[in-house]
């Protein structure tokens, strides 16, 4: 159905002698939720970080909405403003309040008027359920609240696609749910999302596609039903046997 929004073609990346991404092809269509699964060290976080060029690639191409990722500079900054990113460690700006975190991008990058940015920011904070924390500093919030603030910060740019790099890996189980609830809501609204995660439940209920990575390669791309019920590759079967054992 939809048109392709993020297209990675034959992407290769090395960290020194380490070949971390091997001929990776990935297409994500508008409105699609793709969950990238795989064991630690399989390259899934790196793949996520190459999509907005936080990590440059050594060969291959990455296109966002038909535009190839530019080199460093203004053009790259502009493209990044259309790609929301949520990090494992939240990375909220420590010297700014939650609301200031959310309005910085719109005001400085999109040149939205301060008052308008604040009003929109408050709506986003309400949407992720932390409007009462707007004037607090990140360190005064729980991990789950911080991650929801980080999601609001990314959404404030009206991005074309949201990247989630293990968004719940640093959280307690109780807080995982509050973050996943927000993400499920986004998915239901048709947000294009690429989610690197270990949350099998989320992959099952929200993903349109699951991409399974191992040793720098995308080994298998399938619908979640098919992936979890009948994985095609031996490596995926092995992985699922381990993570679903308990």
């Amino acid at each position: 159905m939809g048109e392709p929004l993020v297209v990675a073609t034959q992407v290769n990346k090395w960290f020194g002698p380490l070949h971390v991404l091997k001929d990776v092809d990935l297409t994500v269509e508008k409105g699609e939720v793709v969950v990238v699964l795989g064991p630690s060290g399989s390259g899934k976080s790196t793949l996520c970080r190459t999509l907005n060029r936080l990590e440059p690639i050594d060969s291959g191409t990455i296109e966002i909405d038909g535009v190839a990722l530019p080199d460093e500079g203004k053009a790259l900054a502009k493209l990044r403003s259309d790609v929301g990113m949520v990090f494992q460690s939240f990375n909220l700006f420590a010297h700014k309040t939650v609301l200031q975190n959310v309005t910085l991008g719109p005001v400085k990058v999109r040149k939205v008027a301060r008052q308008e940015a604040r009003e929109r920011g408050m709506k986003l904070l309400e949407r992720v359920g932390i409007a009462d924390k707007a004037d607090r500093y990140p360190a005064e919030l729980s991990g789950g609240q911080q991650q929801r603030a980080a999601i609001a910060r990314a959404l404030a740019m009206n991005p074309k696609v949201m990247l989630f790099d293990e968004p719940t890996s640093a959280l307690d189980p109780e807080m995982i749910k509050e973050v996943l609830d927000v993400m499920l809501e986004l998915a239901a609204e048709g947000t294009t999302m690429i989610v690197v995660s270990h949350e099998m439940g989320f992959a099952r209920s929200a993903a349109r596609k699951v991409a399974f990575m191992d040793e720098g390669r995308i080994v298998e791309v399938a619908s979640p039903d098919r992936f979890f019920e009948d994985p095609q590759s031996a490596r995926a079967r092995d992985f699922l046997a381990k993570v679903l054992a308990h």
Partner: peptide
């Protein structure tokens, strides 16, 4: 922390903006 600059860059801030808005205010403190 490196993540501060990464978060700022991924919002689309340019290098000078990242420095002035996010890094230097924390560095000075």
């Amino acid at each position: 922390a490196k993540g501060q600059a990464e978060a700022a860059r991924s919002l689309g801030l340019t290098f000078p903006q990242v420095l002035v808005r996010v890094i230097l205010p924390q560095a000075f403190r």
